[in-house]
Simulated scan of single mutants.
Amino acid sequence: MLGYVHALNAIDEAMRAAIPSLERLGDVLGLVRSRRIISRSGHVGTYSYTVHGAGCRFVSDDGAEVDVDFAADGSEVFDLWRLRCYGLSLPEPLDVTDHDLRSAVRSLQPLLHEVRPGWFSVAIDRMRAQRRGI
């Protein structure tokens, strides 16, 4: 669970370093859709990315997959399915049950909070955004 959060933070940093106009990871959608500044898929640093529907799928060079959606306010949100996919994509795959994932999410509160039933966000996102003046 924490691995997903750390990977998401690393992706955020890599994307913002590579794309100066990106203030937060959720801005990827706007750059692809309205301004066409970046392509729907590509490679940034050690990650490949593919923008989809309401989010983006990132895959590191070692094959670890982080799929994230973005809420209306641009915050990063994810569900148990995305956490499971991350675990299964690791070099040493982790296959956990929904029950175990829910328990892990509960144990990480207040770091993680449920933004709507079954969807979670990292509370640090808000602190990160405030530090950057967003």
Rank of each mutant, 00 (worst) to 15 (best):
Met1Gly: 14
Met1Leu: 12
Leu2His: 08
Gly3Cys: 07
Gly3Met: 05
Gly3Asp: 02
Ala7Cys: 07
Ala7Gly: 09
Ala7Val: 04
Ala7Lys: 04
Asn9Gly: 02
Ala10Val: 12
Asp12Gly: 00
Asp12Cys: 01
Ala14Cys: 10
Met15Trp: 08
Arg16Met: 15
Arg16Ile: 06
Ala17Gly: 15
Ala18Leu: 02
Ala18Thr: 04
Ala18Arg: 06
Ile19Asp: 09
Pro20Met: 01
Ser21Thr: 14
Ser21His: 08
Arg24Lys: 12
Leu25Asp: 09
Gly26Ile: 05
Gly26Asp: 11
Val28Lys: 01
Val28Glu: 04
Leu31Val: 09
Leu31Gln: 10
Leu31Asn: 09
Leu31Met: 06
Arg33Lys: 15
Ser34Ala: 11
Ser34Lys: 15
Ser34Gly: 15
Ser34Trp: 10
Arg36Ile: 14
Ile37Asp: 11
Ile38Tyr: 04
Ile38Pro: 08
Ser39His: 14
Ser39Trp: 15
Ser41Pro: 02
Gly42His: 00
His43Phe: 12
Val44Ser: 06
Val44Pro: 00
Thr46Glu: 08
Tyr47Asp: 00
Ser48Trp: 02
Tyr49Ala: 14
Tyr49Gly: 12
Thr50Ala: 03
Val51Tyr: 01
Val51Cys: 12
His52Ser: 10
His52Phe: 14
Gly53Asp: 04
Ala54Thr: 13
Ala54Val: 14
Gly55Lys: 04
Gly55Ala: 03
Cys56Leu: 10
Arg57Met: 01
Val59His: 05
Val59Ala: 10
Ser60Glu: 05
Asp61Phe: 03
Asp61Trp: 02
Asp62Asn: 10
Ala64Gly: 01
Ala64Met: 14
Ala64Gln: 01
Glu65Phe: 07
Val66Lys: 03
Asp67Arg: 00
Val68Asn: 05
Asp69Trp: 09
Phe70Cys: 06
Ala71Phe: 13
Ala72Lys: 15
Ala72Asn: 06
Asp73Val: 10
Asp73Phe: 10
Asp73Asn: 01
Ser75Leu: 03
Phe78Glu: 00
Asp79Gln: 05
Leu80Trp: 00
Trp81His: 05
Trp81Asp: 11
Arg82Ile: 00
Cys85Arg: 01
Tyr86Ala: 05
Tyr86Pro: 00
Tyr86Phe: 05
Gly87Glu: 07
Gly87Tyr: 02
Leu88Tyr: 07
Leu88Asn: 11
Ser89Thr: 02
Ser89His: 07
Leu90His: 07
Leu90Ile: 09
Glu92Cys: 08
Pro93His: 15
Leu94Met: 14
Leu94Phe: 03
Thr97Ser: 12
Asp98Val: 01
Asp100Ser: 07
Asp100Leu: 09
Leu101Glu: 00
Arg102Pro: 04
Ser107Trp: 02
Ser107Phe: 03
Leu108Phe: 08
Gln109Trp: 03
Gln109Ile: 10
Leu111Lys: 13
Leu111Phe: 12
Leu112His: 06
Leu112Val: 05
Pro117Asn: 14
Pro117Gln: 09
Gly118Leu: 01
Trp119Phe: 08
Phe120Arg: 06
Ser121Gln: 12
Ala123Met: 13
Ile124Glu: 04
Asp125Lys: 04
Arg126Asn: 04
Arg128Phe: 11
Ala129Trp: 10
Gln130Glu: 15
Arg131Asp: 03
Arg131Ala: 09
Ile134Met: 09
Ile134Val: 12
Ile134Leu: 13
